[in-house]
Amino acid sequence: MARRISTEEGRAALAGVSAAENPSRTDLATAVRYLLQLLVEKAPGHTVEVRVPPFGAVQVIEGPRHTRGTPPNVVETDARTWIAVATGAEQWADAASAGRIVASGTRADISDLLPLRP
């Protein structure tokens, strides 16, 4: 992640996303990146890659570092689903069973780290 998103900027983006049926791309991107930033702060490491295309991807959870090719532990979801599970508006298990979260690898279930508290 390039620059640090302030708490105020992150909360404003989350408010913008929750208040609008079709939030601006800027609010959506900032909210996703802010929540990914909080996840990295909560569980630093390089074992699981969390992807929220096209807005961001981070590596989290202590353990073996991945350096080449497709990581063995990957979580991928869309922006709205990421925001919902990261804020507690939706449960990980519900989103995963609906196919909106794809988690592969033995350590890819990060539900115990959610929700994040912005």
Rank of each mutant, 00 (worst) to 15 (best):
47 T>M: 13
25 R>H: 13
60 V>I: 14
32 V>P: 01
43 A>H: 09
40 V>Y: 00
61 I>Q: 13
51 R>I: 09
35 L>V: 04
64 P>V: 14
37 Q>C: 04
33 R>S: 00
61 I>V: 15
30 T>G: 05
32 V>E: 07
31 A>R: 07
63 G>A: 10
38 L>P: 01
50 V>T: 07
43 A>R: 11
59 Q>N: 12
53 P>R: 12
39 L>M: 12
60 V>Y: 03
47 T>F: 03
42 K>M: 08
40 V>I: 13
54 P>K: 04
62 E>R: 13
53 P>Y: 11
30 T>Y: 05
55 F>N: 11
55 F>I: 03
31 A>P: 00
40 V>G: 00
62 E>I: 00
62 E>Q: 14
57 A>E: 12
46 H>T: 14
56 G>N: 09
37 Q>R: 05
49 E>Y: 09
54 P>S: 04
27 D>Y: 02
54 P>M: 05
26 T>M: 06
64 P>W: 13
23 P>I: 10
55 F>A: 02
61 I>M: 13
34 Y>T: 06
34 Y>H: 12
31 A>D: 03
38 L>N: 14
52 V>E: 04
39 L>Y: 02
54 P>E: 08
33 R>N: 11
53 P>C: 10
60 V>C: 02
46 H>F: 13
27 D>W: 00
26 T>L: 13
42 K>N: 08
31 A>G: 10
38 L>R: 15
45 G>D: 05
56 G>F: 07
44 P>W: 00
59 Q>W: 14
27 D>K: 03
29 A>K: 12
34 Y>P: 03
40 V>L: 09
45 G>C: 06
57 A>W: 02
64 P>T: 13
59 Q>V: 11
45 G>K: 08
37 Q>Y: 04
60 V>G: 05
31 A>M: 07
25 R>A: 15
43 A>G: 04
44 P>T: 02
29 A>H: 05
42 K>D: 10
36 L>I: 03
28 L>N: 04
47 T>A: 14
33 R>A: 07
48 V>N: 04
41 E>K: 15
38 L>H: 12
43 A>P: 07
40 V>S: 08
45 G>V: 04
61 I>E: 13
39 L>T: 06
47 T>P: 00
35 L>P: 07
36 L>F: 00
27 D>H: 11
48 V>L: 10
